[in-house]
């Protein structure tokens, strides 16, 4: 059990080391002749107007909020699914209620047009 996660740990170190090694290798052999014109922000040949970090659509927040609800649900669903065979009818009723409540929330968001693009 612990040795399984030891493998994941070692694997993660190798996985993140590989791109670093690649970038170092590339840093050694690539040309480095930067100038101000090269480092300007790319915008199809024109100068950018104003600040980049602008306000953005509030719609994105609504999706994030609905996502949080359903992602938390997913955390409950996985252990339930693994243990389902041992739990019996009670688990079915329990999860059906849970999903019904969530579906109620989704339906509410739907009727309130939170899923439309304004």
């Amino acid at each position: 059990m612990l040795s399984q996660y030891a493998f994941i740990g070692i694997f993660a170190v190798i996985a993140f080391a590989l791109p670093v090694i690649g970038l170092v290798l590339s840093w050694l052999i690539r040309p480095k002749k930067s100038n101000p014109a090269k480092t300007t922000t790319y915008e199809c040949g024109m100068e950018t107007i104003g600040d980049t970090w602008v306000q953005f659509k509030a719609q994105y927040y609504l999706y994030a909020l609905i996502f949080v609800v359903f992602d938390v649900e997913a955390i409950f669903v996985f252990p339930w699914a693994v243990a389902y065979n041992k739990l019996g009818l009670y688990a079915l009723v329990e999860m059906a209620l849970f999903i019904a409540i969530l579906l109620g929330g989704l339906l509410y968001a739907w009727r309130k047009k939170a899923l439309e693009w304004h």
Binding site: A12, A15, F16, L18, P19, V20, G22, L23, L25, S26, W27, I29, R30, P31, K32, K33, S34, P36, K38, T39, T40, T41, Y42, T52
Partner: peptide, 25 residues
């Protein structure tokens, strides 16, 4: 591998460099 690397002016450099490492890992 041998192409010049350009970091745009005004970029948040540490985050800019960390993103490709994170996504490839």
């Amino acid at each position: 591998l041998i192409k010049e690397d350009i970091v745009p002016s005004g970029a948040d450099k540490p985050v800019f460099n960390l993103a490709p490492i994170l996504i490839a890992g």
